[in-house]
Design a protein around this nucleic acid. Structure first.
Lengths: 190, 190
DNA sequence: GTCTATACGATGATAGAC
DNA sequence: GTCTATCATCGTATAGAC
């Protein structure tokens, strides 16, 4: 699994982006972290934008593909939601830095890439919304406002990356089990 | 309620920060949005840092004061959690832009202010954590990992500002009711 | 693949006129 | 309170030597 020089740059840059944000990291910062000069970076990448778009679009495609897989399966709404929670946890574990860029720096993508990111995000949310509405209709989900349900789950899943590293000792499977339980059953004892 | 020139600057800057992030907004951008030149800003504020720290520390103090009030009351853990949810919704409604800066740009605070922000955030989380542990002990809360409970609730509450504006038609009280219900009882029908 | 040198626009901030 | 003029620095990026 040897990384190309280009991949190395993207890995290192993504860690800096996660810490300080895309705009606060200069090409000189990235170069310094790699032990080379800024001008040398341009032998491997076209520019700073390419790093950002590569990072974000890779993760966005993971979400899109994962959601498409969930939608095409024959499952109850609750089973679909469990699959989506798993999808987010998997992506958090495997693409933590890309996820940070996607969440915080998507607005710094250039026109074309920003448009396709927004399209993917909107489609993703629309699929999720449909699953929730289906669950409310067949009474497997509570009759709360669908948008509030969607937002509550999605906001937790989307910011998991902020928190997963810190308490990294926690086993991935314990996390899955607890998160599914909390979102579906809540935190109050009945 | 006439704003001082300084307050005007902070209000306008905070909107730009929310859209693009602190680092992506220049003093010239802020000045242009106010219809003056960048140099004129310095008659009212010391610099860009002052805008950021004013914004963030104001909101941080709101959280600290609100949490202190909750902790000092004699309430069950569940009642305390309900109060905290209300606190976040109130702050979201009244300090949407400051909240965005606090969430996304706290790392761009200078040394001293960053330290006091982090201290306030850590204290806040520690208070919340204690309430959750108390609830697990007295069996009013489910026996899930306290950190997972803390994170799940907090991540939803912290990113509410992203979502509240978009679907702004939603009444504040409906939102409170639904969010309390979803977090406490979950989204699955029992 | 990396370097040095350099272009050149944008940035935060200040001095001093009005 | 706002302006013009200016500064030093840093930003992304390119050209060409090694």
């Amino acid at each position: 699994m040897k990384l190309t020089r280009k991949q190395e740059i993207i890995v290192i840059a993504s860690k800096l982006f996660k810490e300080k944000g895309f705009q606060a990291v200069s090409m000189r910062d990235i170069a310094k972290a790699m032990g080379i000069k800024a001008s040398s970076l341009y032998n491997h990448i076209q520019g700073k934008q390419e790093i950002l778009s590569t990072l974000i679009l890779e993760v966005a495609h993971e979400f899109t593909n994962g959601m498409n897989a969930v939608v095409s399966e024959t499952l109850t709404p609750i089973q679909k939601i469990e699959k989506i929670i798993e999808l987010h946890i998997d992506i958090t574990v495997n693409y933590s830095e890309g996820l940070a860029a996607l969440n915080n720096d998507w607005m710094h993508l250039e026109e074309e890439n920003r448009k396709s990111y927004i399209k993917m995000r909107d489609d993703y949310e629309e699929n999720f919304r449909s699953i929730i509405k289906e669950g409310i209709r067949d009474k497997s989900l509570t009759n709360n406002h669908p948008e509030v349900i969607l937002f509550s789950i999605l906001s937790t899943l989307r910011t998991l990356y902020l928190w997963y590293q810190k308490r990294g000792k926690l086993d991935e499977n314990v996390l899955k089990k607890d998160m599914v339980a909390i979102m579906l059953q809540g935190i109050a004892n009945h």
